[in-house]
Write a protein that binds this DNA or RNA. Structure first.
Length: 235
DNA sequence: ATGATTTGACCCTA
DNA sequence: TAGGGTCAAATCAT
């Protein structure tokens, strides 16, 4: 498998940083070129794109630099040994048996600190499809929040080891507002859905970017999965 | 049959 | 200990 990142190779990291700095420099130059050639009408999607690229470079560089100093012990050493580096939870090699309380206890130490990982927030009045395949894995009622928070991970977490997750929470503002907090970057190859977006052919049956927002811990719905979804494409 | 969602329990951090 | 993040069995949808 090509799952684990070469995080323990400082020389590779240096090279990666070097390459990223070069890339950022090139993006800067590209931006300058674009600024020269773009008209005065104010709309410059290309420059917008460049800005995003630059932000991406900058973020990645800061992640790498930070990791060099204080994220050395981000992952428990045991997770690198003989188990998938992205989780290492399934350590019950004794087959099933489970059911006992001891299997739950095995989760000890498996959580990572959220604070140290890179994140960014996106607010939107609608639930917009970001072109990625997400899988909902949890929902929590948050203190002092009117709406529950929804937790998503990348669908390819286990088959490609993609670490990306996101949280979506509706704010209490009058025009409904959805705050999406992204954690980590996608390392998976997931271009199928993205191309679907550009084709603008939602097929009506596969608008898989669906989020649910109940009013609390229990949805007061007639049926369990009657109407718990909002389609991001319905306008 | 397979994959996604729901939801209560578990576990970690502050 | 409370609040929040994650797991995983049960359930639902395709």
């Amino acid at each position: 498998m090509e799952s684990c990142w070469p995080e323990h190779l400082p020389s590779d990291r240096k090279k990666a940083i070097d390459e990223l700095m070069k890339g950022r420099e090139f993006a800067n130059q590209l931006k300058a070129v674009l600024c020269d050639s773009i008209g005065e009408d104010g709309s410059m999607p290309a420059e917008d794109l460049v800005v995003k690229i630059l932000n991406s470079f900058t973020s990645t560089l800061s992640i790498l630099n930070r990791a060099e100093t204080d994220e050395v012990s981000q992952f428990p050493a045991s997770t690198h040994v003989g188990s998938p580096c992205w989780d290492g939870r399934k350590s019950e090699d004794s087959g099933e048996s489970s059911k006992s309380t001891s299997t739950r206890k095995d989760r000890r130490g498996c959580y990572k600190r959220r604070r140290t990982s890179h994140s960014w927030i996106k607010n939107s009045p609608e639930l917009v499809d970001d072109g990625r395949a997400w899988r909902k894995y949890g929902q929590k009622v948050i203190l002092n929040a009117k709406y529950p928070r929804n937790y998503f991970r990348c669908t390819h977490k286990f088959d490609q080891g993609c670490q990306a997750t996101k949280q979506v929470q509706r704010t209490e503002e009058e025009p409904p507002m959805y705050r999406t907090t992204y954690y980590g970057h996608h390392t998976c190859k997931n271009l199928l859905k993205a191309s679907h977006l550009f084709l603008d052919a939602p097929d009506a049956t596969d608008s898989s970017m669906l989020l649910s927002f109940g009013n609390g811990r229990h949805h007061h719905l007639t049926n369990k999965q009657d109407t718990p979804f909002f389609s991001s494409f319905h306008q």
